[in-house]
Simulated assay, not measured.
Amino acid sequence: MTTVLAVANQKGGVAKTTTVASLGAALAALGQRVLTVDLDPQGCLTFSLGHNPDRLEASVHEVLTADLRPQDAIVETGEGVDLLPATIDLAGAEAMLLMRPGREFTLKRALSPLLSEYDTIIIDCPPSLGVLTLNGLTAAQSVLVPLQCETLAHRGVGQLLRTVREVQQITNPDLVLLGAVPTLYDARTTHSRDVLADVSDRYDLPVLWPPIPRTVRFAEASASGATVLAGRKNKGAQAYRDLAENLAKHWAGSELVTFAPAVDS
């Protein structure tokens, strides 16, 4: 059975796209057939996986607005995952979708023919709570929230969780909130742990293990059009491999391993 996972946070700069690309590559390394979907008009995931959005002939925009078959827009990547890419044209999709009945279900309908072709589909939602993000949450079975381990990082988390609850009530009652993925984590400081403890207590939100460490390798990988897993061994790549194993075991029936921020890891 295909797992459809949305990765969402309306706050930018929380390593959301890095999480989608690296988690997808790590799941592919475990033998899964993985499709990543770029729903961000900025096309950061598309670029991170080695494709120039300005040179693509077809993208998720045409899939959502012109009834193009997703198979005709999907491209391969060097990470062993397939990609349904985005271009700047996607910025106009919100206005076009607003005029359509059942607009929140557009992506779900488009992805339906692909469910037999992939083990996991990961959706990179844009940093907003507009129609595109609602499409991502409606199409998904579960949602992850990347959360930067800094004081202001959880501003807006409450709003995102309200949106998730509304989606569960209206368009996708089966949507499961898996929890937060701590990113840009510095285990040497009590500040990072305090932020996670506050989020966990305030929002009753599980914090998944392991936390993703702050490392320059992520920026270097993005600039080269590859994920951090493609380079030599580093702690960031290993963290995403561990997270992928945690999720894969959960989808196979095990409980998620969560992170206790009060305990130094």
Score class of each variant (00 low, 15 high):
E94P: 00
T36V: 15
L5C: 12
A21G: 06
D119F: 12
L35I: 02
V63Q: 03
D89G: 01
D72V: 00
L68R: 04
V131M: 08
G102K: 01
D198S: 14
G31Y: 01
K249Q: 15
D67Y: 11
T163F: 05
M99Q: 15
C125D: 04
T65V: 15
I212K: 13
S22D: 04
V20G: 03
A237G: 13
G80T: 06
D89M: 11
D38H: 12
K233N: 12
S254E: 15
G24A: 12
E62Q: 15
A91M: 14
K235H: 13
Q168F: 08
N135I: 00
S142L: 07
D72M: 05
V81Y: 08
T18L: 13
P261W: 05
T17M: 10
L45G: 09
D174N: 13
R109A: 10
Y185C: 05
L39D: 10
R188Q: 14
R155K: 07
A262C: 01
L114K: 03
S22Y: 04
V7D: 03
S116T: 09
V34M: 05
S224N: 15
L247I: 12
L247T: 12
A8M: 06
N52G: 00
P70A: 09
G12Q: 14
E166R: 12
T227G: 10
L84D: 15
V34I: 13
L205K: 01
D124I: 08
A139R: 03
V37C: 09
V63A: 03
G130F: 01
S254Y: 03
R162G: 09
A6K: 09
A29V: 00
I88R: 15
L147S: 09
S22F: 05
V263G: 02
Q32R: 15
L83M: 09
V207P: 02
A110N: 07
T19K: 15
L35N: 00
T183S: 07
H191V: 14
I123E: 02
L111D: 08
L175R: 01
P85Q: 02
A226E: 13
G12A: 14
V145K: 11
T215D: 10
D204A: 15
V257W: 00
V143M: 08
R55S: 13
P113F: 10
G225D: 05
T106R: 13
L243E: 00
R33V: 00
T133S: 08
L35T: 01
T2D: 05
Q42T: 02
R155N: 14
R33S: 11
A221I: 06
E245N: 12
E220N: 08
H154R: 07
